[in-house]
């Protein structure tokens, strides 16, 4: 299927209406033609990127972003299982919610990264600074995605970064969550490498890293 013929708009509409059946039909019709996985990736990432941008601009809600990510993740996982595909992108990524127990943002980013072909380790939520540092070191990750909801947790990202750097770790830290949205410079003050405003932006930041380093 040629790129111009991939029905990104129709797929996006199905996702925004939380219409799992319609989304699956479009997905299937794209794959049926030439059985190329890249087409599916283009379809999902194209739609999710537009939905993420729409959220930034106030056109769509967080619940639509979340449900779209979940539907895409389910579809991608299903096709990966059927066709015995494995994630092609080998960069080692972990995701965690620091201190807070609100995991929605983490789940959105997780789904979008899975839908774009990344495998990633979920450290969970409600972890302390020390627990995050220990897990990141033990798993030897390349990129650590830290989600927060509350301001004190966001400020504590700095402690995570400092503890990792003290251990000579070069793990790249990408942060996200409400405090970083409300204060656009906060990610720099907590010494993160980048601010991931939404799931597709995180994907792009990781792509940059994959291709030679995040400019942060």
């Amino acid at each position: 299927m040629k790129e111009a013929h991939i029905p990104v708009e129709a797929f996006k509409m199905a996702l925004l209406q939380i219409d799992r059946i319609k989304a699956a039909e479009i997905f299937e019709s794209c794959y049926d033609g030439d059985h190329v996985f890249d087409v599916l990736e283009h379809l999902t990432m194209g739609a999710l990127e537009e939905i993420g941008r729409g959220w930034e601009e106030g056109d769509f809600s967080l619940s639509q972003v979340y449900m779209s990510g979940i539907i895409c993740e389910e579809l991608i996982e299903k096709y990966m299982t059927i066709h015995e595909l494995v994630p092609q992108k080998q960069i080692k990524i972990a995701i965690v919610v620091l201190q807070d127990h609100h995991a929605l943002g983490k789940r959105i980013v997780y789904s979008i990264l899975r839908a774009s072909g990344y495998d990633l380790i979920d450290f969970g939520q409600g972890l302390s600074v020390e627990e995050v540092v220990e897990k990141a070191m033990n798993h030897n990750v390349d990129v650590l995605l830290i989600s927060t909801l509350m301001l004190p947790s966001a400020l504590n990202v700095k402690k995570v970064v400092e503890a990792l750097r003290e251990k000579k770790s070069l793990i790249k830290i990408i942060v996200g969550g409400a405090p970083f949205r409300l204060d656009s410079n906060l990610w720099q003050r907590v010494k993160a490498d980048a601010d991931g405003k939404n799931g597709t932006e995180v994907t792009k930041l990781i792509e940059q890293l994959y291709e030679g380093g995040i400019q942060g």
């Binding site: 201190q99 807070d100 127990h101 409600g126 509350m150 301001l151 004190p152």
Partner: peptide, 14 residues
């Protein structure tokens, strides 16, 4: 409820 040193008490696991 989880108490923090410099922030509002937060809810724990649902």
């Amino acid at each position: 409820v989880v108490y923090l040193e410099e922030g509002p008490p937060n809810s724990g696991e649902p």
